[in-house]
Design a protein around this nucleic acid. Structure first.
Lengths: 231, 231
DNA sequence: CACCATTTTTGGACCGGGTCAATTCTTAAG
DNA sequence: CTTAAGAATTGACCCGGTCCAAAAATGGTG
């Protein structure tokens, strides 16, 4: 029932839906039902204007059950998108031999843009847009979407950089990870902002690709004398 | 009474303490008293293990009064350090003509290090250390200290960069701001981590200065082929 | 000094998010 | 069919935060 819409795929655990104990399947279905009703209500009236009790009632469960599936109210929105946390580290780990960290992450990001992966912010999908809109309208969610996500992701990437390249020290790896993810996060935020103004993803693609090239180039070549006026 | 300890200076509004209506003075004193008792209790037993009611009781006030001075429980910890939000933007705005954004921010940060300004993370002060320890032990505070602080700061810096240098576009300014603050944040986090291990600020100063030089250099010159192995 | 106007403080009731111990239901074995 | 084990579920509870009306404290004024 209904299209998985990209985000929902994050709610199962990567297995085949129809191939496991009937018990587990029901659990997964309940999780998806909860998430979907929550997002719908949030999109209609705003995150803070919907109580968890209300979501529970709308999904015919008790309040506690909701917290059983999602540890906090915020997770009802953020949960599914947090499976991407280890992606940057993975991309760097599995990069082609001899290619730099910047090259690997840029290539990965450009590819994701080309297929309109929701994680790039460049997506028309109605549900994805609902989620993004709710996040951008709710300060606490926005903070968590950036920092909360980014911090863990950054730690993992730094560890990966250090492991793969032991001639650089730990601090250098941390700074590099911060630079890379800051660029990527800025790109995604910009794409999301454009989508929220109603622009179609396909129309925004060229600009998004160009922006990505420029952002990663800034990380690769540095800011130089940016701001010195005499450039 | 008791040493102002750097942080507490953030609680008054920059005026002379003893020169204004007795009414205002009492208010400021109460604010400091509340903040200090809260930090003490947090340091002793952890942020989540101390209720606001308890703080109010320890300071001989009602719960409502606490919220009257600090909008949220988190502000009891973070409040004083959030006055630095507009600092990066100010530094860039007031930089010497012809100097780049990187140069201006690096010089400012190095100067702050040299005087052990708490905002750099390099500070021995007992109260500062208490606050930093509490923040690092409490996930929600850590998120707010990084993202929450950084996001606003970053927006301001990006706006400043754009205003001062109209030949660069808005997106470039955003990426540049993100790069600069990511480096600075990484530096500060690293310094704080070192202080929490018990290292003396004076002993850590040389390493901190060196790290700052390297971090800003990475922003200035770029990551290049970092990770390519063939450096 | 006494009085009024303004502001701060207070207590209490209340709401929503989140936790816990106990209850109910499902499931599998005998 | 009975029963014991284990999980899903629940209702009672705690804490952060808001709202309100009343009480207290302060500053200015006759």
């Amino acid at each position: 029932m209904a299209s998985p819409s990209g985000f929902e795929r994050g709610l199962d655990h990567g297995f085949d839906l129809d191939a496991l104990p009937l018990r587990e399947r029901k659990k997964i279905q309940t999780g998806i039902r909860l998430w979907r009703t929550a997002v719908t209500l949030f999109a209609e009236r705003g995150f803070d204007q919907v109580s968890v009790a209300e979501i529970a009632a709308a999904a015919d469960v008790s309040k506690m059950t909701v917290f059983n599936y999602f540890p906090t109210k915020e997770d009802l929105v953020m949960g599914p998108m947090e499976q991407h946390i280890d992606e940057p580290a993975r991309v760097v780990r599995e990069r082609a031999p001899g290619s730099s960290a910047v090259q690997a992450l840029r290539a990965h990001y450009l590819a994701a843009l080309a297929v309109f992966d929701p994680s790039t912010g460049l997506s028309d999908d109605r549900v994805v847009l609902d989620v993004v809109r709710v996040i951008h309208q709710t300060p606490t969610l926005l903070v968590r979407a950036t920092a909360g996500f980014d911090r863990k992701s950054q730690t993992l990437l730094a560890a990966e950089l250090l492991a793969q390249d032991p001639d650089h020290d730990e601090f250098t790896a941390k700074v590099a990870a911060a630079q890379l993810l800051a660029a990527q996060l800025t790109l995604t935020a910009d794409n999301q902002r454009r989508m929220l103004t109603g622009e179609r993803a396909e129309d925004a693609l060229p600009a998004a690709l160009d922006a990505a090239h420029r952002a990663f180039a800034m990380v690769e070549r540095g800011l130089g004398d940016y701001g010195a006026g005499t450039a």
